[in-house]
Write a protein that binds this DNA or RNA. Structure first.
Lengths: 261, 261
DNA sequence: CAGTGGTCTAGACCACACT
DNA sequence: GTGTGGTCTAGACCACTGC
């Protein structure tokens, strides 16, 4: 078997029947896609141990090195986590190390004050018909239902972030303000365990704005305070949009930190 | 030779004498470090073709696969660029594809208007004693000289970005407003060819602010317009700080786009 | 101790670019 | 055709974890 042979049409033993990978993609890319499908299908859930590299190699009828390269990429994309001596696990937002991976607001003097997770206050959780812009962002129709969660995050008692979070009504059926308030884990960790949704990557658009009276009220700032608006689109496996979030950040004692490489 | 053998103290043929890598790092990491040293020393300059994987493997007395893994990482960090069939090249900010890699401000409706590089207007280029904050950022003493470049970038004739750019005086000796104005290439491309400095990675801190009258004057906005302040630290090889830049961005028709993964 | 991921090697062949 | 990077394999051994 070689680089230009697809698993599905290999002369020998096709590893998988239902594959629709682009013709003649490298074997390890096809393996990656198969693993991705298992992740998406929930065969392995966040936190689970997946089969060893040799087991996967046997299952897919390829060498261990090829499986390795596929897993290498998936772990660089934070979909899997390798632990030497233990195995490879499905990544989760529940782990202490990578909690709040998507929250880029950092204190100006990192030495001082609590780095810890913010205090969270749920203001509202409503089930609504999707406004046009929300429907567009989440690839829904305007007749579809969505949840809108409004909340405030405070650091050291200072209300710092106001967020409107929009989620597809079907996928998040049963979401309530009470559940959100009671759960002490990060929101994305709850999404994993309660709704089987894992946020994989996101895209943020930032602007400086003067905000509405309502938002300024929640943040306890005057309406002429410049605020950072952070619009986040989050995606689950295979780039499906799953969350649209408009955040408004105070940046007087914290800043949005971004690494460019 | 194996994973726990350092090149420098290998029984057989040490590949390199002056190595001070941490003990027992993987071979490919040591190779990576050696390549990095050659890049830093200017043995290969931006745009240059470096030796083939087999040549490097011979030079370092390791297998081609090990060199490959080192180059893999360097090319993922954008220090090298592989071109199938041609060879591996030192990355440069001059290539069309990756020009303005660090500029994250994108038009709101990407379909419309000119995506192209902005019109640039140099306001000033002065040689000054380093203010305290600049000295700290660039790891200089306050007695050291620095250049301060002030400029405005406009898109479609609209002044959109004002920047103060601070550079170490020694490294950028001879920098003038005239040179900056005449050169049509990206600034970082000029830094490569004229000063032998390649910016490798950077870190940006963002805040929403109301700016000074002076800056608002350059951007032709009123002083109560919220603006995005982008503070950028740029680093050359081995994480040496080389540029400190304070940008002030209009975000009424453009936004700062960030990918989270 | 066995089982896992991590590193290294050597060799084969493919895809691409240039001449 | 020659030379480059890109893929795949098979086997060896190391480093870490947990029984």
């Amino acid at each position: 078997m070689n680089a230009s042979t697809n698993l599905e049409n290999a002369a020998g033993q096709p590893a998988n029947a239902g594959m629709v990978a682009p013709s003649f993609s490298p074997l390890y890319q096809q393996i990656k896609e198969l693993v991705l499908k298992s992740l998406q299908a929930g065969e392995w859930k966040p936190g689970d141990l997946i089969p060893s590299e040799f087991e996967l190699a046997a299952r897919f009828k390829v060498s261990q090195g090829t499986v390795r390269k596929a897993i290498d990429e998936l772990s660089k994309e934070h979909l899997l986590v390798r632990r030497q001596g233990k195995g490879t696990f499905v990544a989760t937002h529940a782990e202490q190390q990578v909690q709040f991976r998507f929250l880029k607001l950092k204190p100006d003097n990192s030495a001082a004050i609590s780095q810890g997770p913010a205090e969270r206050h749920i203001i509202d959780c409503s089930r609504l018909r999707a406004p046009a812009d929300v429907a567009r962002a989440l690839s829904l129709r305007t007749s579809d239902m969505v949840y809108r969660v409004r909340r405030v995050l405070s650091f050291d008692g200072v209300p710092t972030i106001f967020e409107d979070i929009w989620l597809p009504g079907n996928t998040f059926k049963g979401l309530t303000a009470e559940r959100l308030s009671k759960d002490t884990r990060p929101m994305y960790a709850m999404f994993e365990s309660d709704f089987g949704i894992r946020m994989v990557r996101a895209q943020e658009r930032l602007r400086a704005i003067l905000s509405s009276e309502e938002v300024c009220g929640f943040l306890k700032v005057s309406t002429n305070t410049p605020l950072l608006q952070v619009e986040r689109m989050s995606f689950t496996y295979h780039d499906s949009p799953m969350e649209w979030r408009i955040g408004t950040y105070r940046t007087d004692t914290r800043h949005y930190l971004n690494e460019l490489s």
